[in-house]
Measured scan of single mutants.
Amino acid sequence: CHSECLGNCSQPDDPTKCVACRNFYLDGRCVETCPPPYYHFQDWRCVNFSFCQDLHHKCKNSRRQGCHQYVIHNNKCIPECPSGYTMNSSNLLCTPCLGPCPKVCHLLEGEKTIDSVTSAQELRGCTVINGSLIINIRGGNNLAAELEANLGLIEEISGYLKIRRSYALVSLSFFRKLRLIRGETLEIGNYSFYALDNQNLRQLWDWSKHNLTITQGKLFFHYNPKLCLSEIHKMEEVSGTKGRQERNDIALKTNGDQASCENELLKFSYIRTSFDKILLRWEPYWPPDFRDLLGFMLFYKEAPYQNVTEFDGQDACGSNSWTVVDIDPPLRSNDPKSQNHPGWLMRGLKPWTQYAIFVKTLVTFSDERRTYGAKSDIIYVQTDATNPSVPLDPISVSNSSSQIILKWKPPSDPNGNITHYLVFWERQAEDSELFELDYCLKGLKLPSRTWSPPFESEDSQKHNQSEYEDSAGECCSCPKTDSQILKELEESSFRKTFEDYLHNVVFVPRKT
């Protein structure tokens, strides 16, 4: 048989008469490798580009789960590009990614509803959504962080984005990388972005840091009482949809009607710091009717980097990364020049730590249904340095008659930039024990000054392991946590139920 035959053949030295091919099969003959313009397919066939392209389009058009959109890589027609490569849609070739590779997620039936953290986790790592997304989240724990972890990498949506009755959302900033909504599939009414009845939605994105392009379709905003109209108009300008909307697409009466839409800028007039305090004062603000001013709200939190936005980490279910302080308005003076500047002394802060701070007014709604208010920009203030805590785990070892090696770990709280350490030492008198000992005694162990690591005695271990207080009263049991108490109650309830079950099964009433 021919060298490319495997198993047997019907005619000697003829690659077209093989029972099976050793390498690849091409047009009725066995070959060692697939010549151009053919590609290896499933490690035994040679196919042309049209064959591989037909497989790709067949799966793409069917949208069946589990099928493969075949691509070409290293002269092979394979189910998908290997790690580190992405497909070129024009020629199906796998090309190296520039940075992290995109991950295209194809949605069944063309859309997916995100109504819980669990459903959001199914899209973790996706960068391109081939379909439409509907966000409908009523509640949950730590929602802002969970949504950002699972949806934060999405850069492109081919269909539309719909935010509907998501009472738990305060902001859409968890879509931190969303840059493009194509609108290839539109919501009824030709809408590519749809926001309806979101009672706590206050911000779409921080438009000073976020760009969003909507290729096709219109915007729809109705019944978002805490979303200011200025935020919607800003989205029109940034996304390129200005002029597409009709009169009733953006409701003037049901958007922002319960919001404090600040239209003035508060400026800080005085800032002073110490290692654990920050004193702030800002310019006074009074609405047209000074009785509408209820006070100020001061927001602050630790910020290692200057990239904080107002609604980071917030949701309507209680999660809030900001510390909020309510401040009463100052006494009002008739003389504008003698107006008191409101302020606040922030206490209990960490030394040498940068804080993000902003302040906003708290006002009631005027009778004319106009909203007044003022808010400052987010500023960054760093507390002063102070003395560091003591170095940890000092170790001293003498390696000769004239040297001592000293080692330690950095302090747990540096409280500033540590530039150097101060080492103090003092000579001590020799131990009298060394002169009084009889060095001729056998088995004498000389006193040693070398360091030995501390260890816990058996008594201390027994005390720590004991669940009861000892007789001397030195140790006591740790208080039980809520989960331990709940577990004990469940076990007790189970024992009672099981005992009742045994009584009912074992003891049967005697027939009379």
Score class of each variant (00 low, 15 high):
Lys103Met: 04
Lys103Phe: 05
Cys105Trp: 01
His106Gly: 06
His106Pro: 10
Leu107Phe: 07
Leu107Gly: 04
Leu108Asp: 00
Gly110Arg: 10
Thr113Val: 09
Ile114Leu: 08
Asp115Gln: 08
Asp115Cys: 05
Ser116Phe: 10
Val117Leu: 10
Thr118Trp: 08
Thr118Arg: 09
Ser119Ala: 02
Ser119Met: 11
Ser119His: 15
Arg124Leu: 09
Gly125Ala: 14
Thr127His: 03
Asn130Leu: 13
Asn130Tyr: 04
Gly131Asn: 01
Gly131Trp: 00
Gly131Lys: 00
Ser132Ala: 06
Ser132Val: 02
Ser132Met: 01
Leu133Gln: 00
Leu133Met: 08
Ile134Glu: 05
Asn136Ser: 07
Ile137Asn: 12
Arg138Leu: 15
Gly139Pro: 01
Gly140Pro: 13
Asn142Tyr: 03
Leu143Pro: 06
Ala145Glu: 13
Ala149Asp: 10
Leu153Tyr: 04
Glu155Ala: 06
Glu155Gln: 11
Glu156Pro: 00
Ile157Tyr: 00
Ser158His: 05
Gly159Pro: 00
Tyr160Gly: 04
Leu161Ala: 02
Leu161Gly: 00
Leu161Thr: 02
Leu161Asp: 00
Ile163Pro: 00
Ile163Ser: 02
Ser171Trp: 02
Leu172Trp: 00
Ser173Val: 06
Phe174Asp: 00
Phe174Leu: 07
Arg176Leu: 03
Arg179Asn: 05
Leu180Tyr: 09
Leu180Trp: 14
Arg182His: 10
Gly183Ala: 05
Gly183Cys: 03
Gly183Val: 00
Thr185Asn: 09
Thr185Pro: 09
Glu187Gly: 12
Glu187Asp: 15
Gly189Thr: 04
Gly189Glu: 10
Ser192Met: 02
Phe193Gln: 00
Phe193Gly: 00
Tyr194Gly: 11
Tyr194Ala: 14
Tyr194Thr: 11
Tyr194Trp: 12
Tyr194His: 12
Leu196Cys: 06
Leu196Val: 14
Leu196Ile: 13
Asn198Pro: 00
Asn198Asp: 01
Asn198His: 00
Gln199Asp: 15
Gln199His: 04
Asn200Pro: 07
Leu201Tyr: 00
Leu201Ala: 03
Leu201Met: 02
Leu201Lys: 00
Leu201Trp: 04
Leu201Pro: 00
Gln203Met: 11
Leu204His: 01
Trp205Leu: 03
Trp207Phe: 12
Lys209Ser: 08
Lys209Glu: 05
Lys209Leu: 08
Asn211Gly: 05
Thr213Met: 08
Ile214Thr: 09
Gly217Glu: 00
Gly217Lys: 03
Leu219Trp: 08
Leu219Phe: 08
Phe220Gly: 15
Phe220Ala: 07
Phe221Lys: 01
Phe221Trp: 01
Asn224Met: 10
Pro225Leu: 06
Cys228Gln: 03
Cys228Ser: 03
Cys228Tyr: 02
Cys228Met: 02
Cys228Phe: 03
Leu229Lys: 10
Glu231Gly: 13
Glu231Val: 03
His233Lys: 06
Lys234Asn: 14
Glu237Ala: 08
Ser239Met: 14
Ser239Tyr: 03
Ser239Ile: 12
Thr241Val: 07
Thr241Phe: 09
Arg244Ala: 05
Arg244Pro: 09
Lys253Ser: 10
Thr254Val: 04
Asn255Gln: 07
Asn255Pro: 05
Gly256Gln: 04
Gly256Trp: 02
Gly256Thr: 01
Asp257Met: 13
Gln258Arg: 12
Ala259Ser: 09
Ala259Val: 13
Ala259Asn: 02
Ser260Val: 09
Ser260Thr: 12
Ser260Tyr: 03
Ser260Trp: 03
Cys261Trp: 02
Cys261Leu: 02
Asn263Asp: 04
Glu264Leu: 14
Leu266Pro: 00
Lys267Ser: 12
Lys267Cys: 09
Phe268Gly: 00
Phe268Trp: 10
Ser269His: 11
Ser269Trp: 09
Thr273Ile: 10
Ser274Pro: 00
Ser274Tyr: 11
Ser274Gln: 07
Phe275Tyr: 04
Phe275Ala: 14
Phe275Met: 14
Lys277Ser: 08
Leu279Phe: 07
Leu279Arg: 09
Leu280Arg: 00
Leu280Met: 13
Arg281Met: 09
Trp282Asn: 02
Glu283Leu: 06
Pro284Cys: 04
Tyr285Glu: 01
Trp286Lys: 08
Trp286Gly: 12
Trp286Arg: 08
Pro287Leu: 09
Pro287Val: 10
Pro287Ile: 08
Pro287Gln: 04
Asp289Lys: 03
Asp289Trp: 02
Asp289Glu: 04
Asp289Gly: 05
Asp289Leu: 04
Arg291Thr: 14
Arg291Glu: 06
Asp292Arg: 04
Asp292Phe: 09
Leu293Ile: 03
Leu293Asp: 03
Gly295Ser: 06
Phe296Asn: 05
Phe296Tyr: 02
Phe296Val: 03
Met297Thr: 02
Met297Leu: 14
Met297Gln: 15
Leu298Ser: 01
Tyr300Lys: 01
Lys301Gly: 05
Lys301Asn: 13
Glu302Val: 04
Glu302Pro: 08
Ala303Trp: 10
Asn307Ser: 11
Gly313Leu: 09
Gly313Arg: 13
Cys317Asp: 13
Cys317Tyr: 07
Ser319Pro: 10
Ser319Lys: 08
Asn320Ser: 05
Ser321Ala: 11
Val325Pro: 00
Asp326Gly: 05
Ile327Ser: 02
Ile327Lys: 01
Pro330Gly: 05
Arg332Val: 14
Lys337Trp: 07
Ser338Ile: 10
Gln339Val: 09
Asn340Val: 14
Asn340Glu: 15
Asn340Tyr: 08
His341Thr: 13
Pro342Lys: 03
Pro342Phe: 12
Pro342His: 13
Trp344Gly: 15
Leu345Thr: 11
Met346Gln: 10
Arg347Trp: 10
Arg347Thr: 10
Arg347Ala: 10
Arg347Cys: 12
Gly348Trp: 04
Leu349Asn: 00
Leu349Trp: 00
Leu349Ile: 05
Lys350Val: 06
Lys350Trp: 02
Lys350Arg: 13
Pro351Tyr: 08
Gln354Leu: 14
Gln354His: 07
Ala356Lys: 02
Ala356Arg: 02
Phe358Cys: 01
Val359Tyr: 02
Val359Arg: 00
Lys360Ala: 14
Thr361Arg: 04
Leu362Cys: 02
Phe365Leu: 09
Phe365Ala: 04
Asp367Gln: 07
Asp367Lys: 11
Arg369Gly: 04
Arg369Tyr: 14
Arg370Ala: 14
Thr371Glu: 09
Ala374Arg: 03
Gln382Lys: 10
Gln382Val: 06
Thr383Asn: 00
Thr383Phe: 00
Asp384Gln: 02
Ala385Met: 08
Thr386Tyr: 12
Asn387Asp: 04
Pro388Glu: 07
Pro388Phe: 06
Ser389Leu: 12
Ser389Cys: 04
Pro391Ser: 03
Asp393Asn: 09
Pro394Cys: 14
Ile395Leu: 09
Ser396Met: 04
Val397Pro: 15
Val397Ala: 07
Asn399Met: 15
Ser400Ala: 13
Ser400Asn: 10
Ser402His: 12
Ile404Cys: 03
Lys407Gly: 04
